[in-house]
Nucleic acid binder design. Structure first.
Lengths: 199, 199
DNA sequence: CACATTCATTGACCTACATCAAGAACGCTG
DNA sequence: CAGCGTTCTTGATGTAGGTCAATGAATGTG
C-alpha cells in the first residue's frame, strides 16, 4: 500500500520540515541538509556506542531509535527519536566526553548524519548555522524541561497519561516495557495503570 | 572582615566572570554588561511571579534566589541561583508563556537585569550576542541534563551526596527543607539520610 | 504446525520514601 | 533571658511503586 518515493523526494520532505522548524529559507535548508550524508541502519544496529564520544548528529528520515542509559544491566530510556527528529547524545557532543548512553535502532532506520567538525566548519561560512544551533539548543532545553518537570511534579499515572496525549504515535510503535522505562517505572506498573484506566 | 568594594569593582568582577564563562573579550563583556540595569532586592522579594511572562534575565552580583513550582500549596524547588549565576524562568522566556514558577530571594540580593527585548535588539548589532546565547542555551541544557539524569538513575541518598560534593557552598546557605525539595524528597528523608551518614 | 521467544498481565510480597505527630534545637526580637 | 517562630529530628505508620514468579498472549521460525 506504500508509494515508493525516490530518495530525492524523501530528502525534499525533510528539507521542508527543517525549513519550517528553524525558520530557514528553502535554499538555506537545502544547503544545510546537503552537507549531511545518508546512513541506513537495521533494527538493533547501534548508532552511538556507550563509551564513545558522540561527535555527530543524525536527522531521521524514516525509522525509530532509542537512547538509553545502562544502569547495572538494566536499560533506562533517556529518549526516543523518529521521523523528522534529530538524534545524538548531545551531552557528549557538547562536552566532548565519552557517551554514557547508547543509541540503537528500534526499527530499520534511514537517517542523515553530519559531524560536529563539519557543522563547525559550516558555521564559519554560513552565519545562519549559528542561529540554527541556538534554536536547536533551545528546543533541546524545552524538551528536557518538560521531562524534568513531569518527573518533579507528576506521579506514574499522570506521566503515562500525558505521554499518551503528547506522543500517542510513538506510544503505539514502542513496546510497553520501553515506555515504562522512559517514564521511570517498571512494566508491571504500566500494566496496572492501564488496568485501572481500563485501556 | 569583608572588604567594602565600590559598585564599580563589583561590576568589574562580574565582567571578568562573564568574559571567562563565555570566552568574550573584556571589551565585549563590558559592552554586554553595560546594557544591564542594577536591581536591589530584599530577602523574600519576588523577582518573577507565577503567571507572569518572564521577559528578563538577571545576573546575580550578590545574594541567593530560589525558583520554585507551587504544587498544591507545596513548594517544589526547580533551581537555586547565587553570585555569578544567571537567573530567569527561561522556559517562559523562550516560549513567551506565563511562568508556572516563582523566583524569590532567599537572601538580600543585588543583580543586573536585562530584558528579552533589549537582548534581541543588541543581538542584531553585535553578532557575538547570538553566539553567547547559544553557549548559554548549551549550559542550561547541560544543567538540566545532569538533574534529569540523577532523577532517572539515582536514589535519594545518592542525589544528596552528589549535591554535597557538587554544590557544597550552596548546601550550607540553604535550609535543609529546601534542599530536600530540590532533591524531590521530604525534609524527614534528608534528616534520616544525614543520620545514616552521621553528618 | 510445533516450538521458542518475546512481551504483557496478574498476584503475593517488599521497600523506599511519604505522612503525621511530637519534641528538640536553634535562632530572633522584645 | 524569656518567649516565639522556624527548622530539624525522631518515631509510628501508610502507600506508591518495586521485585519476583507464574501464566498468557502474540509473534516469529525451522
Amino acid at each position: 500500500m506504500q508509494i515508493d518515493r525516490s530518495k530525492d523526494n524523501h530528502l525534499k520532505s525533510l528539507t521542508n520540515h527543517i525549513a519550517t522548524l528553524f525558520h530557514l529559507s528553502p535554499q538555506d535548508a537545502e544547503l544545510f541538509l546537503s552537507q549531511f550524508s545518508q546512513t541506513v541502519l537495521k533494527k538493533n544496529d547501534v548508532f552511538v556506542a556507550e563509551g564513545q564520544v558522540c561527535n555527530k548528529v543524525g536527522l531521521i528520515e524514516h525509522g525509530l531509535m532509542k537512547c538509553v542509559y545502562n544502569k547495572e544491566g538494566e536499560e533506562v530510556v533517556f529518549e526516543f527519536a523518529h521521523e523528522g527528529n534529530f538524534i545524538s547524545d548531545y551531552y557528549s557532543f557538547v562536552t566532548n566526553t565519552p557517551s554514557e548512553k547508547e543509541i540503537r535502532c528500534l526499527e530499520d532506520t534511514t537517517l542523515y548524519v553530519i559531524t560536529k567538525e563539519k557543522l563547525q566548519t559550516l558555521a564559519i561560512v554560513h552565519p545562519f548555522i549559528e542561529s540554527l544551533s541556538r534554536t536547536m539548543n533551545e528546543r533541546l532545553f524545552l524538551q528536557l524541561h518538560d521531562r524534568l518537570k513531569s518527573m518533579l511534579l507528576d506521579d506514574a499515572q499522570q506521566r503515562y497519561q500525558q505521554l499518551l496525549v503528547q506522543r500517542r504515535d510513538l506510544a503505539q510503535r514502542i513496546p510497553q516495557y520501553l515506555i515504562a522505562s522512559y517514564l521511570n517505572v517498571t512494566p508491571e506498573t504500566i500494566s496496572r495503570i492501564r488496568k485501572k484506566m481500563s485501556i
